[in-house]
Design a protein around this nucleic acid. Structure first.
Length: 138
DNA sequence: GCCAACGTTGGC
DNA sequence: GCCAACGTTGGC
């Protein structure tokens, strides 16, 4: 049973387009235990929604998990951190904004709204499907 | 640029 | 083990 996730990134630092250009990339540098633990629950082939923070504040595209959690190479000896590897998917037809998400009954209780500082989070299949509807991308 | 929310650190 | 102080994130 596939699971669904959402990861956040500041596009000036690493955008969905950067991942698209790279094709696949290591998702590392996460230094929050809750986010780390969610990454450790990711399984091969899981679908990931890619959210841009900052000015954009919207879900812009898809990705998928192609390598499950391994020791974060950027952490060195600094601690027990994990990374995964993501493959780029398609861009959403229309970005789904945070304002839309907050205004939507099916989405307003998701982690993105409840805990705005969390950078890796699970979403339900229903929430995922709703995002695709709002994206005009079913 | 401000500030609320959250996590971490360190004094006691 | 509590909590005040501080740092960071990210929405506004």
């Amino acid at each position: 049973m596939a699971q669904y996730w959402l990861v956040k990134s500041e596009p000036d630092e690493y955008s969905w387009s950067d991942l698209k250009k790279a094709g696949r990339d290591v998702w590392d540098g996460i230094r929050n235990y809750q986010a780390r633990n969610f990454m450790r629950d990711m399984r091969w082939g899981d679908t990931v929604l890619f959210y841009h923070t900052g000015k954009e504040r919207s879900i812009v595209g898809l990705a998928s998990v192609i390598r499950t959690a391994f020791p974060d190479p950027s952490a060195g000896e600094a601690g027990d951190w994990s990374a995964v590897e993501l493959k780029s998917g398609r861009r959403l037809k229309h970005p789904v904004t945070l304002a839309q998400i907050k205004a939507d009954n099916a989405l307003k209780n998701c982690y993105l709204v409840r805990n705005s500082r969390l950078s890796v989070m699970p979403i339900t299949a229903d929430e995922y499907n709703r995002v695709l509807v709002l994206a005009g991308d079913t």
